[in-house]
Amino acid sequence: MSSNAKMLNKYKTDAEVIARLHELGLSYDAITKYYRLDNQDYVKGLLRYYDFKLKNGTIKKKDDPLSLLMDGLKKENYNLEGFI
């Protein structure tokens, strides 16, 4: 799979990450809780993974896609190899 397919060109800056998390419904307090200096690469990879799954239809908006994102943010245990 190409780097374009994995969206490695997205979420290169903090501003992009924060804007996307806010767009997905996270408050700024939640963003500062889950997006920290020690996990920036993980969160960027998680957002790429999330967008990849949305684009490919493996998660649907009606299935509460935010639960996938929040689970990944809270547990930080997703294997995001290839998305980071």
Rank of each mutant, 00 (worst) to 15 (best):
S67E: 09
S67W: 01
K75G: 03
K44C: 10
K75N: 10
M70F: 10
K53V: 01
Y35C: 02
L37N: 13
T32H: 11
L54Y: 06
G72T: 05
D38M: 05
L54W: 00
L73F: 07
E23D: 12
K74N: 06
V17N: 08
R20F: 06
L68F: 15
D29T: 12
I18G: 09
S27P: 10
D41I: 13
D64R: 15
Y34R: 01
G45T: 13
D51H: 05
I84W: 03
G45I: 06
D51A: 02
K74I: 15
K44P: 06
D41K: 11
K60G: 02
E76V: 10
I59Y: 05
Y34P: 00
L21D: 05
S67Y: 03
K33N: 02
A30P: 01
L37M: 10
K44G: 08
G45E: 14
K61A: 11
D71C: 07
L69E: 01
I84E: 10
L47K: 11
D41W: 09
K33F: 01
D41Y: 11
R36W: 10
Y49M: 05
L66Q: 04
L37A: 15
L69M: 11
F52R: 08
D38N: 14
F83R: 04
L69N: 02
F83H: 06
F83E: 01
N77A: 13
K75M: 01
H22R: 12
Y34M: 04
K33P: 00
F52M: 09
K74V: 15
P65F: 09
D29A: 15
L80C: 15
G72W: 13
L21H: 03
K53A: 04
Q40N: 14
